[in-house]
Design a protein around this nucleic acid. Structure first.
Length: 766
DNA sequence: TGTACTTAAGTTTTT
DNA sequence: CTTAAGTACA
């Protein structure tokens, strides 16, 4: 016992050893959050307060769940089998599989991923003759998911206007269709579980009694429904250990409600909020910068990170003339750090939006620096894998229309759009699923026989599914469907073939784990209802769930030492010795779109906070005076977030060969160091803010660029910094018209982008 | 049915 | 610029 808690700091210790009462742990970045969570579980089990079966620990990602399990098995001598540790959706899946009858689901219900969901919506919208212009599938999907994530069924959605009423109707039809097919989408997993428990008192009490301790990771990311779900399971006597960080709440756009933290304090009568503020990751200057930035936010619970490890190096800031130069700078610094012994894999290059990776990749590629981009397609999202899985889904559930539509004519077997339409029409007239009407011979002629062929393939697979091993079944799918032959004949099909073979491999591995009880779908005897069906069916269902719920890493091929490229969002939770935050320009980061939303800037600022706190030792911030965006140059000024960092923590990098002149500040680089001419001070500090050391780093002007950018007929240059009497400072980004009609477009630091009539606008060079 | 061209749009993402 | 999705045509 003492072994577990002896090396914890006082706050961690307090959190881990709390008596049985609900608590909120405000865990700052790098404060040992996962450690506290897992040690708490180990402590509870080891001190005999609960048996493993009484633990429910819930996370958002499979990765986090795996990490927790790995750490737990290292801490506890006993096996972790009886514990319920998983993602919200994984745990819901587990509950629904066990209680499929109470949930009104077929035993082998399928899970639709976002792509599947969208194709179902498209199919349905088309069948209803819904105007795609007025009701874009994407919007319908959002409407449905938002409603479900708020815990609302179609009949509960308030519809004030005709438009909403129509979407509500569609939502109802969509749900009906899902029920007919026996499929559930992600949000449905949560909502259905919630409803099943809420309406079945026996079941609810069983689980409320069972889960003596509920632990929630990344609590700030929970949506309304997830919070309701937690409350329901906790009941009146529950004990919820919620760990989160409001300052790292960056997922509002997908339904996360930071407000749940305050709700939680109120609903559960939390007496004390424990703050973990000691940081074990970053050096002092980095933490000071993070603290200073996040302090600008008003809506906070309040927290300040500290370390006893010393200040470390200053943050390095670089103002590039353009995106290419920014990339070149990063390449040089990465090289240098690598030479000094920092592993490439210990460095991250972060950006706000994926599109920014292109230029960076280009430079890295030319410089022959190994890099890895996160965020690509995942294994189970690949086209060829989805096709193979569709056959597998039909083997498990022939009424899965989404799977049917995907492969009825793939590989092409001469079933045209008209035939598929006929099937769909028949299906809508209440004649059952696509497979069902297909069997009834709705389509005649040559297509009819092709369809019969397809049915025969599926029927054969269904038979095989009863006897063959999973990997053998997939092997058979590849052969009988002609998928393998099809890709073998395609000119670029080689990779796809390899992936298909990998699928067989993955299935074999999965089956192995499953039989050894490593996969949670194999239920423990403690549960109310035993799983039914043959072992083969269970395994098949588990594998299909696995494919939907855990689509695989978004990581490129692993192994080699490589620089890590990713968006700031995907960097959350990770740490690196060296971190580059690129593209720190107004409009890009904070992103333009965020400025329209209420609280948008604060969310962007939290994103900046997350980015900064990824760094252990060295942190670079860079921005570019101009960058190509959508094929056009876009001129930017330095992000407000750079200005919010106390200048004393920063060192401005100016490359020797870039020192041209010490004249007035330019323009082109969006400020090259001194954005404000306040006597060398750099705006935010006031007083004796050091900013760039002028003796060593004269403020450069990049002449060539400056000259090129100045159209003769205008008094201002594109890229030039200007001052407006009312709007303050900004940068000229465009012109329109000539003479008295000429208008000038300026991106202001505080008021966004505006078009001004050149004749009237009182602009002065800044 | 498949290929070639046009057109529009372009934050962030897990399950 | 780049990509995805839709349209026109052989």
């Amino acid at each position: 016992m003492s072994r577990l808690v002896s090396s914890l700091n006082p706050q961690q210790h307090q959190a881990v050893t709390l008596p049985r009462e609900s608590a909120l742990i405000l865990a700052g970045a790098g404060s040992g959050k996962t450690r506290v969570l897992t040690t708490r579980i180990a402590y509870l089990v080891e001190s005999g307060q609960v048996s493993p079966g009484g633990i429910l620990a819930v996370t958002f990602t499979n990765k986090a769940a795996r990490e927790m399990l790995t750490r737990l098995s290292a801490m506890l001598p006993i096996n972790t089998r009886g514990m319920w540790v998983g993602t919200f959706h994984g745990l819901c899946n587990r509950l629904l599989r066990t209680h499929f009858r109470d949930a009104d689901l077929p035993q082998l219900f399928q899970i639709l991923d976002s792509g599947d969901q969208q194709s179902l919506i498209k199919r349905l919208a088309k069948a209803q003759g819904l105007d795609e212009e007025k009701y874009p599938p994407r919007q319908l999907q959002n409407f449905i998911n938002n409603a479900k994530e708020a815990g609302l069924r179609a009949n509960a959605v308030e519809a004030g206007d005709e438009f909403t009423r129509r979407m509500m109707q569609f939502y109802a039809d969509y749900d009906a269709q899902c029920n007919r097919e026996g499929v559930v989408d992600f949000a449905e997993l949560m909502l259905r579980t919630f409803e099943t428990l809420a309406r079945n008192l026996n079941l609810l009490q069983h689980y409320q009694n069972r889960f003596r301790f509920i632990l929630v990771d990344e609590f700030q990311d929970t949506n309304k429904l997830q919070y309701k779900w937690i409350k329901l399971l906790a009941g009146t006597n529950g004990c919820v250990f919620a760990v989160g960080d409001d300052d790292q709440s960056i997922y509002r756009f997908r339904g996360a409600e930071v407000g749940n933290m305050n709700e939680f304090v109120r609903d559960f009568g939390i007496r004390e909020v424990i703050k973990l503020e000691q940081n074990y990751r970053s050096q002092g200057n980095i933490l000071d910068a993070a603290n200073a930035i996040i302090a600008q936010n008003k809506a906070r619970l309040g927290k300040n990170l500290w370390t006893d490890e010393g200040k470390g190096e200053p943050l390095r800031i670089y103002a590039a003339a353009n995106d290419n130069e920014e990339a070149a700078f990063i390449v040089d610094e990465v090289r240098q750090l690598h030479r000094e012994g920092m592993a490439l894999s210990d460095m991250a290059l972060l950006y706000r939006s994926n599109a920014q990776s292109r230029v960076l990749e280009h430079s890295l590629f030319r410089a022959k620096i190994a890099y890895k981009v996160y965020g690509g397609l995942r294994f189970f999202e690949r086209q060829e894998i989805k096709h193979a899985m569709a056959y597998l889904r039909l083997a498990a559930n022939p009424d899965d229309d989404t799977a049917f539509s995907r492969v009825v004519n793939f590989p092409p077997r001469g079933i045209g759009a008209r035939s598929i339409e006929q099937l769909q029409e028949a299906s809508e007239q209440g004649m059952g699923s696509l497979m069902h009407v297909a069997k009834n011979g709705v389509v005649g002629g040559r297509s009819g026989s092709s369809i019969a062929q397809f049915i025969a393939i599926i029927e054969g697979l269904r038979k095989s599914a009863e006897t063959l091993r999973l990997s053998e079944l997939i092997e058979e799918i590849l052969e009988r469907s002609n998928l393998r032959q099809f890709y073998a004949a395609e000119k670029d099909g080689q990779d796809r073939l390899e992936n298909l073979n990998e699928l067989i491999n993955a299935a074999a591995l999965f089956a192995d784990d499953y039989e050894h009880g490593l996969e949670p779908a194999g239920e423990s005897q403690a549960d109310v209802e035993q799983l039914e069906g043959t072992p083969e069916q269970q395994l098949l269902a588990a594998f299909l769930s696995h494919a939907s719920l855990e689509a695989g890493e978004r990581e490129a091929a692993a192994g080699q030492d490589a620089l890590q490229l990713m968006t700031i969002h995907s960097a959350k939770g990770l740490e690196f010795s060296g971190v580059f935050i690129s593209g720190l320009e107004e409009g890009l980061f904070p992103h333009d779109n965020s400025m329209l939303e209420d609280g948008g800037i604060e969310e962007e600022r939290r994103l900046m906070y997350v980015a900064i706190t990824r760094a252990r030792k060295r942190l670079y911030l860079s921005y570019a005076g101009s960058r190509m965006l959508h094929g056009q140059p876009r001129y930017g000024i330095v992000s407000r977030f750079v200005e919010e960092i106390p200048p004393a923590l920063c060192k401005w990098i100016v490359l020797p060969e870039k020192q041209f002149d010490t004249g007035r500040q330019s323009a082109f680089g969006g400020g090259w160091g001194n954005r404000n001419n306040n006597g060398g001070g750099w705006s935010s500090g006031g007083g004796r803010a050091p900013g760039p050391d002028k003796d060593r780093y004269p403020t450069p002007v990049k002449r060539e660029s400056f000259e090129k950018a100045r159209p003769d007929e205008h008094p201002f240059a594109i890229g030039q910094n200007v001052r407006h009497a009312k709007f303050g400072e900004g940068v000229v980004i465009n012109f329109e018209g000539r003479g008295l009609d000429a208008r000038i477009q300026v991106r202001f630091a505080s008021d966004g982008t505006k078009w001004l009539a050149l004749q009237y606008a009182k602009l002065t060079p800044a």
